[in-house]
Design a binder for these strands. Structure first.
Lengths: 69, 69
DNA sequence: ATTTTTTGTCAAATATACTTGACATTTTGT
DNA sequence: ACAAAATGTCAAGTATATTTGACAAAAAAT
């Protein structure tokens, strides 16, 4: 899977560590790391919580135009 | 959880049954039903596949302004 | 240079998304 | 009214998201 650089950038823009974001979102640091590194397929509720914590929308952080595949 | 009426409407607009959408997305009819009825928390990849099959984006089908809690 | 914080990653356990099969109810078509 | 298609839902199983604990490497701070 591909890394989520947009998420990483949005987090950096707010000067949050993975651990701080994890706490806001009530999930583990490892989970945040895995999501950023594209190591798995998070649930949409987690994605939504991350978006809210970072002040972004789903399309901004998780949508890919570029016909998938 | 809340029903996903936008998804139901988008599917209806293309005149697809739950079963037909399920096949396009390579998931079970029960899973589509559960997602529409808000009975659970799908993975983002499933949401993305559903969006592509219905010609919508994540924000259009799964994002909620209304600071939902 | 050396602490301190942040991040990557691994293994084992737990929670939950998703499947399969089946039946009842609702909706649509004739 | 009847038959067929579409949907809701349940139980038991399988796959995988997420946790917990831990350690090493990289980056940032002093």
């Amino acid at each position: 899977m591909a890394k989520n650089l947009r998420m990483k950038a949005a987090r950096a823009a707010l000067d949050l560590s993975q651990d701080e974001l994890a706490k806001k979102v009530k999930v583990t640091r490892q989970t945040i790391s895995a999501v950023e590194n594209g190591d798995y397929n998070p649930t949409i509720n987690l994605c939504i919580d991350i978006c809210r914590a970072l002040g972004k929308t789903l399309d901004e952080l998780f949508w890919n135009d570029e016909g998938g595949k």
